[in-house]
Design a binder for these strands. Structure first.
Lengths: 337, 337
DNA sequence: TTGAAAGCGCTAACAG
DNA sequence: CTGTTAGCGCTTTCAA
């Protein structure tokens, strides 16, 4: 049984006693500024050994309370259920650690209230920066941070009150749409306008992608079908429902589609699989997002892969510079295979 | 410009002064035990209002230093790059919050040294429990926790020194193998032994899955091909290499395959796509793991979906009971579509 | 009903 | 080279 009752933890005072020295010596040795204090390497070694033997771990709560900077950096993220956000948090952790920062991450399930609560909790933990990823109301979070004297950054979805680092949605969507239109021409002999599906019309990214979508059609001289722009939300079910409704009312669905995320793509593919409309000719899809299995498992799906390392490098540049201009927008081009 | 220099943060002393009362009253009001102290609701209201106005947030470092329990629960996880781990962290966060615990998560990139370092860092933050998910050396982590008087749990991959909650790998693999063998019979007219690919022979889960794999063959009277069991590691490239090597030396690869994870499946699918061997008849696959796109995008792939909510419910039951027997193994059956 | 005061474990002057 | 000391912001007796 490891019915280990939370026994009293070893402190620097315990170590000091064991080493026959003072707590401050122990503290200095254990956090590396012992040359500055010119402590004998003998003592240093002894203290280090004893600390090891006792399995000592500093109490961060106490340490941080005393220091002026926490070196904690927070991130809130909507979900962990797709490669894009997964890659964001993984890269964030790696880059934070590489800079001596301690990353804390929390997911908000796209719930606006949870978002605010999560931001407040992060502030309680004294984060030095808060990065709001894909937040529904980034400006509200920035306000809260500002009031607490904490700096913040928006990622993926922009706000107006803090620097925002996002994909270049317009240019990315324009290129993706172009590629998809050309695929349609090659596969079915003629160009035809695409269906746009997924995302919220109210969010900046979707609006910009629709703009790029339009522009690409214009570039290639293909007329747009206005009622074929369905910003029906991101959830898979929403996309499936929208397609159902269109099939019911129009009797068909365009063969070429611009799908606004892998999340929406899940619903699109599910619906396509369940419908006889594409039995003869498979759909031709462009997806603004990337997933390895989508790339590997059949179908003709072109993807725009958002440049996560690029975005986070930009974010950490700002963190390290310590600046953060109001509402500045940094756009990182997505990558094509 | 939000060149917000980390201004001095508001403390309960500031609030006390503004409210014309004492810090202890503020503290009591702000953390809800003010009826116990019979503070007038008038004062309580006033304090709450002022706190709100000032955008006050408690300093957790100070609060936790004083309290005896941190109510922080830690989890280490190898990667965020697949649905299984993504779902684990998401569910973990939700369940932790529902129980009034603050979850902190860190990923270790399957790096044994990072694993240990991450565990130590978690201890520094005074976590009350540490859940090691898919750790390469869970017992080492348990030892470190034990020395610090912290309780720990293993998830996904078992250890011998703390309770482990894992999938029922043997039964799951047996069922998955059976289903895949039957698929092979239906698709190609006759049963034939499957190829086992992915995972490390040294890890408990892979060993158990291989045992289930053997048992299912035996159940159905199909002989095993010993050299068709390739525990070549999880990484996609490893799986692809192993298939290449087999194709080179034997000139063919079995049509039916048991793939040990979606991670390995990525490599398997990539190789299959690049090889002419399956141009005529597509592979028939059983995958021990689940991914929505694999389910949707063509091919005949049977999946065993690990029961993440079931596993985490078991974990939190133990956390709430406060127990944690050495080396006890709790096996949760995976789900089939 | 409320306030004063001690102290959680650690760091950083400062004094030897 | 090393130890003493004064807090960091908060919670929690205890006394009023």
């Amino acid at each position: 049984m490891n019915q280990q009752r939370p026994q009293k933890k070893t402190t620097i005072y315990d170590l000091a006693e064991l080493a026959g020295t003072s707590a401050s010596a122990v503290s200095a040795v254990l956090n590396g500024n012992w040359k500055k204090r010119r402590i004998s390497s003998q003592l240093a070694e002894k203290i280090t050994r004893i600390a090891e033997e006792q399995g000592y771990a500093v109490n961060m709560q106490a340490s941080l309370l005393r220091r002026e900077k926490s070196r904690i950096i927070g991130m809130i993220v909507p979900k962990y259920d797709n490669r894009y956000f997964g890659s964001i948090v993984e890269t964030f952790e790696i880059m934070a650690r590489a800079r001596g920062l301690f990353p804390i991450i929390t997911c908000t399930l796209r719930d606006p209230d949870l978002e605010i609560e999560a931001a407040r909790t992060m502030l309680s933990y004294q984060v030095e920066w808060l990065i709001s990823t894909g937040a529904t109301d980034p400006d509200r979070i920035t306000d809260i941070c500002l009031a607490a004297g904490t700096r913040s950054l928006n990622l993926d979805l922009p706000g107006t009150k803090a620097t925002s680092i996002i994909s270049d949605n317009f240019a990315g969507a324009r290129e993706l749409t172009k590629r998809t239109l050309i695929n349609v021409e090659q596969k079915s002999g003629a160009m035809a306008p695409l269906l746009f599906i997924g995302g919220r019309g109210s969010d900046h990214n979707t609006a910009e992608r629709i703009r790029g979508f339009r522009m690409a059609h214009q570039d290639l001289g293909v007329p747009i079908e206005e009622h074929h722009i369905l910003a029906c939300g991101y959830a898979p079910e929403k996309a499936a429902q929208a397609l159902s409704a269109m099939a019911a009312s129009e009797g068909s669905v365009p063969r070429g589609m611009f799908v606004n995320s892998t999340i929406s793509l899940e619903g699109v593919m599910r619906w396509i699989k369940s419908s006889p409309l594409f039995d003869a000719a498979p759909p031709i899809i462009g997806c603004f997002d990337w997933d390895p299995f989508v790339a590997l498992l059949g179908h003709d799906i072109e993807m725009a892969r958002q440049d996560v390392p690029g975005m986070l490098t930009a974010a950490f540049d700002i963190v390290e510079k310590g600046s953060g201009d109001t509402g500045k927008l940094i756009e990182i081009p997505p990558l094509f295979a």
